[in-house]
Design a protein around this nucleic acid. Structure first.
Length: 834
DNA sequence: ATCATGCCCTAA
DNA sequence: TGAGTTAGGGCATGAT
């Protein structure tokens, strides 16, 4: 018996299965990287007969399975719930954990058996069967063998892993950038930044910088040695998934022979493997996938993370950096002309290296600023899985992690993922019509976690759904006629998980408040991150269960959730309208109600003492009304909250587009849907719109219209600042469009690439200015200032004045000023005359 | 001129 | 390891 005398607390980065062993890579709380081989978890899948009743020749069939070469033994499990009723199940212990071996077993036995717990990678069983999460304590035997690029190489078995309270692991981060030749794609130089987090999720020290130049082989070997030496858990960079990693791979193919595994490993063996002949020593990606994988580490693309969090108008590294770090002057000047990089590298290599170093550091600074890594780790902890599942996996993988382990413990058979046919979509949320105009004093109420609450309160789950419409069992029946067993009969897996997540969230919120009052800043941030991760995960359940492919879903589930949602909200609207209350707007889980104000008060707090007093009285009235309404309509089935008090609400009459002056709980203008929120609008329009919303909410329509008319006059004269007219939209690969040449952003992307020698990455935003729109087609010029280019110096006067008039005219039309009247600046029948 | 379609982006 | 959902606005193009 080996002695497992060493003990480590660690966060799991990733796992893999290798024969009957599970391989696990992690980072210890004390800072070391660790690689573990875990024994004792044999691969298996589960089977039951495909007929309704137990077939008479069941023993013959079982023997046939037992005698197979790929089967070790067959274990009787007893009864489990399946979607076809309760059935006897057997566990088939298999020799191989390989996906293709399991798949051929299934193929060869498809006539006799149904398969369960059969279609996910074996290493996931470590989490499900041992019920462990991201942060674990292990007892192990440290092996004196330094082949693996980690600080600790150890062995253990499944009896030596235990859950511990989540913490923030001191992950090591590498961030890199390449400069490559435009002439021949060669790598000219590279820079790598190495840094580490501390256990409060902060950066530990000043990052260390490394640069590489010389021959391509020297550069690639140098980087690989550094990666294996400094041993980062996370490798980042800007747009690395689309550019840097594929370029390194390309150069590897160019520089080495396919069978020269030794050299290939020396050049690009970034994985945490020991042997140069492992097939996954080199980063790789699945067929048809954009996502790169490196065994034992994680790639995170700073571009993608910044895009998701910030939704920036433009997506170049320089634009995003200036957005996040506006005070940093060193980001403003772009010393290197990347469109002439070969020449620059020839003439002033030192400056190019400095530039490369800066572009290696920035992606890490972006991730740090957005707290990307602590957020991923919190989400991993809440979904009880490895870091890489959260980084590289899908929403359904997170849900799997919680659902499968619970199913296993409740004798629910875990079905394989299958695709449901759903040619017609399920119906979604209810959206109320909104009449154009300004509404003073509006209370906004909304249902707290609406879809999760509906799932909990009606016990909605695949395991509680009853097909028999005439069942006599006590059920909750959805408005669209689907029946779910009541909790007293059988508690659904999903409702149980959601309830548990709700109480977890309450716990972290409480801890967060405690930490705040004790002045424990990092503890407060930690619990805030955890409660937020719980929220994200809870809100993911509906989407996965309403999808057409998840293993535990059914088309009825999604449709009954939304049916209940529509019923709940429209029932409240109906009751309010019956009482002659004015429901101004409603979308899915929210209701906007006019407050029956007894006093007349200005909607903006005046400076005069008397006016201010009136305003405050009205605000008190608003809050009272909102709270009473929330209380009145809150039932055990659904908690309605008074979320926001508005002194004024405006919409021009389109759903999902409104503005409001929030005065409770805090003071702020809220804008939804309008161009102001859209990343494909231009600054002149969004700024003007924001400004006129301020006027409109204050009841000053005259100033709003004056501003628009003045602006359009100036734009017509050609006085607009071209930078404020830049439009930016994302652009896919050109062949993905039915008629690419008809699209202005495709034109811009092509000009960017062909006329200016710059990269175009499919999926990224392209910025442009419309310079001519005579005839049917627009003529556009790409905007390349963030790429080191010159600004466009002209714009199409008619196009921009018309677009402004159209977008702003929709709004001013509510006060009688149409698009054409804004363009001419005059009106026949005047409300105001200018 | 009007309508249908393709596309992007947002609210929830 | 292929994969969260629907509702909705608005721009541009192209057919009728």
């Amino acid at each position: 018996m080996p002695e497992y005398s060493s003990q480590f607390d660690l966060a799991v980065i990733s796992t893999k299965s290798n024969d009957s062993k599970i391989q696990l890579w992690g980072r210890c709380i004390t800072g070391e990287s660790i690689f573990l081989e875990i024994g004792g978890l044999e691969p298996y899948l589960e089977i039951t007969y495909s007929t309704e009743q137990v077939p008479s020749d069941i023993n013959v069939k079982l023997d046939k399975v037992k005698r197979r070469d790929d089967v070790v033994e067959v274990i009787e499990l007893g009864e489990k719930w399946t979607e076809y009723g309760v059935k006897e199940m057997w566990r088939v212990m298999m020799k191989s954990s390989k996906h293709q071996d399991r798949s051929s077993f299934r193929k060869e036995n498809i006539n006799d058996w149904l398969f369960y717990n059969a279609d996910f990678n074996h290493d996931k069983r470590l989490f499900y069967d041992l019920d462990i999460g991201t942060h674990i304590r292990i007892n192990c035997q440290v092996i004196d063998d330094h082949r693996y690029p980690v600080d600790i190489y150890a062995k253990t078995d499944i009896h030596n892993l235990n859950n511990i309270t989540p913490f923030q692991a001191p992950f090591v981060i590498a961030s890199f950038d390449l400069e490559t030749s435009i002439l021949d794609n060669r790598i000219l130089c590279a820079a790598v930044i190495i840094d580490q987090l501390d256990t409060s999720g902060q950066r530990k020290e000043i990052a260390k910088e490394y640069t590489f130049s010389g021959t391509e082989i020297e550069i690639m070997k140098g980087m690989t040695n550094l990666i294996r030496d400094k041993n980062p858990d996370i490798i980042t960079g800007y747009n690395i998934d689309n550019f840097d990693i594929p370029r390194l791979k390309e150069r590897l193919e160019y520089l080495t022979k396919e069978n020269d595994t030794k050299t290939r490993s020396e050049l690009f063996g970034w994985s945490r493997r020991a042997h140069e002949n492992e097939w996954d020593m080199i980063p790789y990606r699945a067929r048809n996938s954009k996502k790169w994988t490196v065994v034992g580490r994680c790639f995170i693309d700073a571009w993608w993370e910044a895009r998701m969090v910030l939704r920036p108008k433009r997506e170049t590294l320089s634009y995003v950096s200036q957005l996040l770090f506006p005070k940093r002057r060193d980001l403003r000047k772009l010393e290197i002309d990347t469109s002439k990089i070969d020449e620059e590298w020839e003439k002033r290599p030192d400056e190019v290296l400095e530039y490369c170093k800066r572009d290696a550091l920035l992606p890490w600074e972006i991730l740090d600023e957005l707290r990307v890594i602590p957020k991923k780790e919190s989400l991993a902890a809440v979904s009880k899985t490895s870091l890489d599942v959260v980084i590289n996996g899908t929403t359904s993988n997170w849900i799997d992690s919680l659902v499968i382990r619970l199913a296993d413990r409740n004798n629910v058979a875990v079905p394989m993922t299958k695709r449901y046919d759903r040619s017609d979509q399920i119906a979604g949320g209810y959206v109320h019509e909104v009449e154009p105009g300004v509404y003073p004093w509006v209370a906004v109420l909304d249902f707290k976690s609406m879809y999760p609450s509906i799932m909990i309160n009606n016990n909605i789950c695949r395991t509680t759904m009853i097909d028999d419409k005439n069942t006599q069992l006590p059920c909750n029946e959805s408005p669209d006629g689907i029946k779910y067993l009541q909790k007293s009969q059988r508690e659904g897996l999903v409702p149980k998980l959601l309830l548990d997540l709700m109480s977890q969230r309450d716990f972290h919120k409480k801890e967060m408040k405690n930490a705040l009052s004790n002045g424990e800043k990092s503890k407060q941030i930690f619990h805030d991150g955890m409660q937020y991760a719980v929220k994200i995960l809870m809100n993911s359940f509906y989407g996965v269960f309403a999808s057409t492919f998840y293993r535990f879903t059914h088309k009825n589930i999604g449709s009954s959730i939304t049916a209940w949602a529509r019923y709940n909200i429209t029932e409240i609207i109906r009751q309010l309208e019956e009482e002659n209350q004015n429901v101004v707007y409603s979308d899915t889980d929210s209701i906007f109600v006019s407050v029956p104000m007894k006093i007349t008060a200005p909607t903006k707090r005046p400076n005069t003492e008397l006016g201010a007093k009136k305003f405050d009285e009205a605000k008190t009235e608003l809050v009272k009304f909102g709270k009473e309404l929330a209380e009145r309509f809150t039932e055990d089935a659904a908690e309605l909250e008074f979320e926001t008090g508005l002194s004024a609400f405006f919409s021009h009459g389109a759903k999902k587009r409104y503005v409001g002056r929030m005065i409770w709980p805090k003071e702020e203008m809220i804008i939804r849907g309008y161009e102001t929120r859209r990343s494909d609008s231009f600054t002149l329009l969004t700024n003007t719109m924001k400004s006129i919303f301020e006027y409109i909410l204050d009841g000053n329509q005259e100033s709003a219209i004056k501003e628009v008319i003045t602006l359009i006059k100036e734009v017509k004269k050609g006085n607009a600042n071209v930078e404020d007219l830049v439009i930016s939209r994302s652009c896919k690969a050109f062949d993905r469009y039915a008629n690419p040449d008809g699209l202005p952003f495709v034109q811009a992307a092509k000009k960017r690439r062909d006329d200016h020698g710059l990269e175009f990455t499919p999926g990224m935003k392209v910025a442009y200015v419309v310079t001519k729109s005579s005839g049917s087609n627009q003529v556009v010029e790409p905007w390349l200032v963030e790429d080191g280019g010159e600004p466009v110096d002209t714009y199409d006067i008619d196009y921009y004045s018309k677009r402004l008039a159209k977008a702003l005219g929709r709004i001013t039309e509510a006060f009688g000023w149409s698009e054409n009247e804004l363009l001419t600046g005059t009106r026949q029948t005047t409300l105001f005359s200018f």
